[in-house]
């Protein structure tokens, strides 16, 4: 557990940002990750008073405050209706209900964890990250950025709905995933596929493939060969490469089924 001497319940983003410029200050999201460290900090900055614990349905899509819990995402009706129940499916394997009532989407995205189920799904939905003060940036670019002292304010999903499917594999329930994939379909039928827990950070599959491609499976294999996979204590590299193909084919089958229901 970390230690801290002061607590600041920020009354504005500017106040939080100014306080966060000191090296000894830290923003607390859900604290689940932070508490595993032993850092000695001067000030804890809490964003709880800024109304960032809400999911708003906007004209463009969804706006999700940084302090929204993983459980809120998992159980939010409109969000799950819009995205084929993908948030419920992707987040429910993370530890347990009590944990997901604590962990926030802000902390999950800020962490840019390789194993993230959350980022793999958001990446397939073309999510954007609103930072204070620098503004909105694509999640794909954000996860490549070095850590700085900004505030993650919101996650934006620029779609009112989109067919999307997620698949993950765990060695044992509640453990970190061995591999996570997600796939969504653009309006013109192009697939946007992502692979996470490789075990490195999630990436998009580098190919423009269509759901109606007659030779989709072969094209998918060629594209997956371009993505680096590595081993860690949970699985080897070859197994991950194999899983990526199996799980993405399952996700694609799910999307085809969605499509046939919709027609």
């Amino acid at each position: 557990m970390f230690s801290a001497k002061q607590y600041l319940l920020a009354q504005s983003l500017e106040e939080a940002y100014v306080a966060n410029q000191k090296r000894t200050a830290t923003i607390v999201g859900g604290m689940c990750w932070l508490k595993m460290g032993k850092r000695q900090m001067q000030t804890l900055i809490d964003l709880s008073a800024l109304g960032l614990d809400e999911i708003a349905v906007t004209k463009e899509g969804f706006s999700i405050g940084a302090m929204v819990s993983l459980r809120q995402l998992e159980t939010h009706k409109e969000l799950n209706q819009a995205f084929c129940n993908a948030f419920a499916k992707a987040l429910s394997p993370i530890v347990g209900v009590q944990f997901r009532n604590c962990a926030t989407v802000g902390g999950s995205v800020w962490g840019r964890f390789g194993f993230s189920d959350v980022i793999t799904l958001l990446l397939a939905l073309d999510a954007q990250v609103e930072l204070y003060p620098s503004g909105v940036i694509a999640l794909e670019d954000f996860i490549k950025m070095p850590y700085d002292n900004q505030i993650l304010v919101r996650i934006l999903i620029p779609h009112n709905s989109k067919p999307v499917a997620v698949q993950s594999h765990r060695n044992t329930a509640t453990d970190f995933p061995v591999l996570v994939v997600a796939a969504s379909v653009e309006q013109d039928g192009t697939l946007r596929m992502t692979v996470g827990a490789r075990p490195q950070k999630a990436v998009a599959v580098p190919a423009s493939l269509s759901l109606s491609d007659a030779d989709l499976n072969n094209h998918l294999e060629t594209a997956l060969d371009k993505i680096p996979f590595e081993k860690n204590m949970r699985a080897g590299k070859e197994f991950r490469r194999h899983l990526a193909s199996v799980l993405l084919k399952r996700a694609i089958a799910q999307l085809k089924e969605e499509q046939s229901h919709a027609n």
Binding site: V28, M31, K35, M36, R71, V95, V97, Q98, N101, C102
Partner: peptide, 26 residues
């Protein structure tokens, strides 16, 4: 030590949370 066991569960405003992973000030 890893927010994994659930033994510390309490309700915060009726929601079950891990009391090991919540600051008292919250």
């Amino acid at each position: 030590e890893t927010s994994n066991c659930g033994l510390c569960t309490v309700w915060l405003d009726e929601k079950p949370v891990l009391s090991c992973s919540v600051l008292a000030v919250r």
